[in-house]
Simulated assay, not measured.
Amino acid sequence: MPLYKTIKPNKHTTIYVWKIEASFCELSEEIELTERSKNRLLSMKSELHQRGFLSIRHLLIKAGYTDFDLYYNENGKPHLKDGKHISITHSFNFSSLIISDSIVGIDIEKNREKIKIIQHKFVNFEKGFIHKDDDYIQQLTVIWGAKESLYKIYPHGGLTFKNDIDINSFEMKDQKTTGCIHTQGWNKKYDIYFEQIENFTLVYAIDPLSND
């Protein structure tokens, strides 16, 4: 079960992408889980979610870790015991994680028509630069994924996508933009990168200082 792709956005950061093609049984083989993870896995009603969960554990191994190196804080955000920063995502048959010396966030989403219906829930001033052309769904998915990535970066929870996170103008061909979290006691800008993987949009946010 090989990696689908590895990305090195800078010398401090690595992204691992997995295409989930193996069965639940195949993904379960030779994977050791903490008791917490075993209970989480058993509580999942969807096999698709179970396979996504297990694929992340395979990605951890590819990155040189195991499930025992991972823990979650009171807000449900993942952390690594060695102090490196991690963010996790999976959607349908793709999963990914990002590991860095600096704070990071990642999201992968399937490009779907449904996002046009719910855009009012997360698009704010960004509607001024969206072009309703062939890339319309992809543009909206980038905005959603960028906001999801920044939401994962913010340590305290409780942000709203529409009012607390802004994504700056971008062209799909550039595969990058910037975004900002602006809430009480927190006003920070981040570099945003995105790319298409088959019919999915991968988006990740990085502290600009880590690119130096």
Rank of each mutant, 00 (worst) to 15 (best):
S100C: 05
F94N: 01
K114G: 02
I88E: 00
S91F: 01
S100R: 02
G83S: 14
I106P: 04
S95M: 05
S87L: 09
K116M: 14
I115G: 00
F94L: 06
H79S: 12
V104D: 08
I118Q: 00
L80N: 06
K127Q: 15
I103Q: 07
L80W: 09
N93P: 13
E109T: 12
D107K: 06
G76L: 08
H85R: 06
R112N: 14
H120V: 07
G76A: 11
S91T: 09
F94V: 12
S87T: 08
K127A: 15
Q119A: 09
T89E: 01
V123W: 00
Q119R: 09
Q119E: 03
K116C: 13
K121M: 10
E113F: 11
N111L: 05
H85E: 03
R112L: 10
T89W: 06
K114H: 11
E109F: 06
I86F: 03
F92M: 12
G83L: 00
I115D: 07
I88Q: 05
T89Q: 07
H85I: 03
I108Y: 03
E113G: 03
K114V: 12
H85N: 15
K110I: 14
I117D: 11
F122I: 10
D107P: 04
K84G: 04
F122E: 12
D107I: 12
S100D: 10
K127Y: 14
I115V: 14
F92E: 15
K116A: 10
L97W: 07
L80M: 03
S91M: 00
K114M: 13
K114D: 13
N111I: 15
S91I: 05
H79L: 05
S91E: 11
K81W: 06
K110S: 15
F94P: 06
I106T: 08
K114S: 15
I118A: 07
I117V: 15
E109L: 11
F125P: 00
H90Y: 15
F125A: 15
S95E: 07
S91W: 01
R112E: 11
K110P: 09
V104F: 03
D107S: 12
E126L: 12
F94E: 08
I98P: 02
K77V: 14
F92S: 11
V123G: 02
D101M: 01
I103A: 04
T89H: 04
H90I: 13
V104E: 06
I108N: 07
I106E: 09
N93W: 01
G83N: 10
L80D: 02
I103Y: 04
N124R: 03
I99C: 08
K110Y: 04
S102C: 08
G83R: 09
P78C: 11
K116N: 13
S87R: 06
H79P: 04
L80T: 09
D82L: 13
I98A: 06
S102L: 01
S100G: 13
E126I: 04
I103H: 06
I108H: 02
I99A: 00
H120E: 09
